[in-house]
Design a protein around this nucleic acid. Structure first.
Lengths: 345, 345
DNA sequence: TTTTAGCACTCTCAATTCGAGAGTGCTAAA
DNA sequence: TTTAGCACTCTCGAATTGAGAGTGCTAAAA
């Protein structure tokens, strides 16, 4: 890693920067000209050859320019990871947008996805905050018509789930409210384990609803994430690496199959983790379809109480210089919002 | 229109059917061979020439096969519109899936989008049912923490909206429940117009919440649709007409800009409406980007109470034979579900 | 009068060729 | 250790070409 001379580091960084911009293999002469290096192309050529041998660069074919290898990108990212900061003006704009939006988790997620996609010019993904060990907070039963009842359940972390029930026979709103009130008193603050150990209720309706609540809590606990919000799908289509062939299609299909995305995000605790961020380069995620892609991921929220993931996906030569600080900043912003919502003042 | 001889109709239908399958201009000789016509290619050639002159077919260039014009597709659709029915087996599968899903509007919408996309091999879009003149049904106020309050509002049509409020100072759950109870008694069954004419409440909290309710109802009434659910985006990428160039990208961008989709759907009351279905061929929708596309749309739900839209988009040579019956069937299914939810038993 | 066979003509598309341009590695001199 | 010079390699776009498919027209057959 550090067996690189200063000059080699400089040249490597320049090659990668250039390739990220132009998507073209970069040669010795072009490099010297474009960056006004105080070296001849022949010297650079020797260094390129050395970097090639060490595995940081590759040649698509004999006598073409050099292209970064996965190893090269890793070096690049590790170098720029620390310095990168989002410009203040951009930070303000984004913060402003969030405080302007309606105070609603769904709005925030959509907005986060939009911001990430626009800033990084990649595909963004954001999952709603989710508590591993959800504690019950409140239930409401609202009679919509006849035997149809709307059940709204709120978790301590702020998660809300709603469901339409069909009862065996019509029940008055009064009775529903009483049942809800009894259950609220009984269950407040309990986790699903504790709730399921409770003795059966004598009232049949109470018992039915209780069963449903347990069911719903189990279901929600099982899935690591609820909805996944994405944006910027079209960005990836404009990248030249996806211009031809059906690579683009196969990649996009990953995003339509939400289950795949879930798996991808939940598995991504592996990989190099720097400053709370995780950068997966090339096939590191383990998905064949994403061999040409990189991802910048981060977890946000309050550990143990409610956390979610967010990140950006792009071609391997994505603009890390934009993606990394943006992901870091938005993760911080969402963490603050979650914190405000959960912890109050 | 009916100045076509029987033979011309047959040939026209065959040409279009063939072109929809192969996406290749179809010539006289191929036509005779593939469908074992009892005619010589020369005769067919004359007929093709006639159909060309009448505007039903077009030649991409001299001495290539024929390709259907928009007029041709219109004829094709009007011919097959009536006969098309979804196979019973498929109907059963779909119905089964719906009754298997969790009874929740969001689930239904997602499922409908998925079914439409898979069956038609196009891009699907579904909007949630929405009442033009929403009447208030119920409100709940749940204290999440400190000054944070979750407001859940239910409309008569079954629409639910939730919102996080931050009050000026902490309020106990008891007081919130009382406020909710008072407002529920006062507002039940009223439309937004009636509510906004009500005299101001003496209690400050009551008044604040009332204002928010009106605001929220106005907002919901303004937008023709809420969320738009889509699926099958990748289907359109595999169509040969989108293989090259960035046409595909521009089309997909329409689907990321939800506001455009909304406009598109709300404007589509024009166009030929047959059997409750609307088929827009080529640029009929008025969007330049969709000049190469067709759409099959339908409205579902209970008119006046709660309706939504659903449909399928594909290339002009999409499989109408699948898309039309599928859209019709799913529209019927969703109408039944909405009906059940609203009208009870 | 309608259908068909035959023929000359047109146009596209895929394969091929070819030369310019960019890049490399190596060697010998600075 | 760096640089200039040179021969060599490989890609890419432009131009060329020939096969194939399709057409329209005319004259003969039904």
């Amino acid at each position: 890693m550090s067996d690189l001379t200063e000059r080699q580091k400089t040249i490597l960084m320049l090659v990668i920067r250039d390739y990220i911009e132009t998507a073209q293999p970069v040669g010795s002469k072009a490099l010297v000209e474009r960056y006004h290096l105080d070296l001849s192309s022949a010297t650079v050529r020797n260094e390129l050859s050395a970097l090639d041998e060490m595995g940081y660069l590759r040649q698509p074919h004999t006598s073409a320019g050099r292209v970064p290898s996965e190893e090269g990108y890793r070096f690049f990212v590790s170098q720029m990871m620390h310095q990168a900061e989002l410009p203040e003006a951009v930070q303000h704009t984004i913060t402003h947008q969030f405080y302007q939006a309606r105070p609603d988790v769904e709005q925030w997620m959509t907005l986060a996805a939009s911001v990430l996609a626009h800033q990084s010019q990649g595909v963004s993904m954001v999952t709603a905050p989710h508590a591993e060990q959800a504690r019950f907070k409140h239930v409401e039963l609202i009679c919509t018509q006849g035997r149809q009842v709307l059940m709204v359940m709120v978790m301590a972390g702020g998660e809300v789930s709603q469901q339409i029930l069909t009862l065996a026979e019509p029940v008055s709103q009064e009775r529903l409210s009483l049942t809800a009130a009894r259950l609220n008193g009984l269950l407040a603050g309990l986790a699903v384990d504790a709730i399921s150990k409770l003795p059966a209720r004598s009232d049949a309706l109470d018992q039915d609803i209780l069963t449903l609540i347990i069911q719903e809590m189990r279901r929600s606990a099982e899935s690591d994430f609820g909805n996944i919000y994405t944006d910027g799908l079209t960005n990836v289509l404009s990248d030249p690496e996806f211009a031809e062939s059906d690579d683009a299609r196969r990649t996009l299909r990953l995003f339509e199959e939400r289950s795949i995305l879930q798996d991808l995000l939940s598995r991504s605790t592996t990989g190099s983790m720097v400053g709370g961020l995780q950068v997966l380069i090339g096939g590191e995620g383990g998905w064949e379809e994403l061999r040409q892609c990189s991802m910048v991921l981060a977890r946000y929220g309050v550990p143990g109480l409610a956390t979610g993931m967010l990140g950006v996906l792009g071609p391997m030569r994505m603009s890390y210089a934009k993606a990394i600080p943006t992901v870091r900043f938005v993760a911080g912003l969402l963490s603050d919002l979650v914190n405000d919502t959960i912890a109050g003042e």
